[in-house]
Design a protein around this nucleic acid. Structure first.
Lengths: 258, 258
DNA sequence: GGACGAACCAATCCGAAAATGGTCCAAATA
DNA sequence: TATTTGGACCATTTTCGGATTGGTTCGTCC
């Protein structure tokens, strides 16, 4: 196979690549120029470049150039498309899935600085002069919990969920001159979550978060005119698979911080 | 307040907006032109536009123009930044959080077409001629499970996790002429997950997925030279908070499809 | 058969010019 | 006095043409 000049070009190319300063530009000269520099034809150089690309040393893109290192990541997420075919119920389901576990991991991994941030959010949300301001601090609180897990991936996931949530038409949006009433259900629920995190009680934190989300969901569905979620307040009826739940959930979510 | 010409401009503007065809462009004429069309000065028109913007009818942006409808959502996620400060352990933690619940919801909501897709992935992954091809079908399988939940938000979340996972440097990447051995651990584990989904057994599906992820994590950490996760195989030691887990997990993840 | 050179293609980048919303100000107007 | 008007700037964005660059296909020559 690769006999003759192609192999020579590959060797010369590797040597040229090795002899360049470490702080050199990630971008290589254009093929035409590089071919002239190495004393090879462009076609031959391209074969050598193809080898380097196959082994992951470089990556190329039409119109951009040839670069050394890993190919950059492109988002690939078409948010506006997701938003069009999603519903508030979907968002609530995702929140139920994510946020209790975030609270749980926050109780395990949260730092003192994280807790300061959470307490700040609690205080400010009580002082909020209008709904818009309240929602800012509410949002910042939930994000702070994700931050307290110490896991940037989880934080990114919650951020993604947030952008979707914020973009959905929530029917009535309660903006106005009024302010949240002092006995707004979220206040006590938020404080319960933060208290459990502060006491390093993971189960209690997750439980408190579930209670909070159940409350939010009930209000949301009521506002949308839907029927309440079946079994959301019963809490009875321990089925046969319960023991498996214990064996699964407890050991496999250790919450190690890497 | 808005006395005199401003009010008149607002009325004329509303009328002009109402009288345009439904399929008209979302983009309004430039302010200078629109002002001339309505016979108002630009400053007055801008006050009227400010009212419409405050009530959410239109949105504006410098250099772009004025548009009717909701303001488009911007990603706000800087993926390349997240990737730089994250670790394989973080990604595994996120997978443990997400994917078992996805399997659970897939068992509840998956359609026959979804199951066909999953079985196709199983078959193709066994036939894969090299690791690269195997990882394609493996990836498509996990994505298919998220698809089977019927929740586009969860699918978007898994996609986001995937882009992060794919971008991280996984140390050894097992690309090469070899192919996955026929007794590769993932085969049986994947089939267990899909079987549980097909039998509509949510708990079993979640359990099988946890087992699979635990296996993946063990191999990953071994390859990276880390110590195994404490308690990942013990599964004993039922602590005091277990009953609460039951009361929490079971009723609050109903998996309703909206 | 393989290497070379040339030409062409489609995607991308680049820079200047135009377009657009945001802002300020003095004159005109009621 | 209070409001409107027209004009001039500003910062951001779009637009558009030309240059750049990797991808591809020829004919030609060893």
């Amino acid at each position: 196979m690769g006999s003759g000049e192609t192999e020579g070009a590959l060797i010369r190319l590797r040597a040229w690549l090795a002899n360049r300063p470490a702080d050199a530009d990630k971008r290589l000269p254009p093929e035409r120029e590089l071919a002239r520099m190495l004393g090879v034809s462009r076609g031959t150089l391209r074969k050598a470049l193809a080898v380097l690309e196959a082994e992951g040393t470089i990556w190329r893109h039409v119109g951009r150039g040839t670069f050394v290192g890993d190919r950059p990541v492109e988002p690939l997420l078409d948010l506006s498309d997701v938003i069009r075919r999603t519903s508030p119920a979907h968002v609530m389901e995702a929140r139920f899935l994510l946020e209790p576990e975030l609270a749980r991991l926050a109780a395990l991994n949260g730092t003192a600085a994280d807790l300061d941030e959470l307490r700040l959010c609690l205080r400010q949300s009580r002082l909020a002069p209008d709904w818009r301001s309240y929602e800012y601090w509410d949002n910042r609180l939930h994000r702070g919990i994700a931050q307290a897990t110490g896991n940037t991936v989880l934080l990114a996931l919650l951020d993604g969920l947030d952008t979707i949530r914020r973009a959905i038409a929530w029917g009535r949006l309660r903006r106005g001159p009024q302010r949240p009433p002092p006995d707004h259900h979220s206040f006590a629920e938020h404080e319960a979550v933060v208290a459990a995190i502060a006491e390093r009680d993971p189960q209690a934190a997750a439980t408190a978060m579930r209670r909070h989300l159940a409350s939010v969901r009930a209000r949301l569905f009521a506002a949308l005119g839907l029927e309440p979620v079946p079994g959301s307040e019963s809490g009875s009826a321990i089925d046969a698979g319960t023991k498996r739940v214990l064996e699964d959930v407890v050991p496999t979510l250790p919450g190690v911080r890497a």
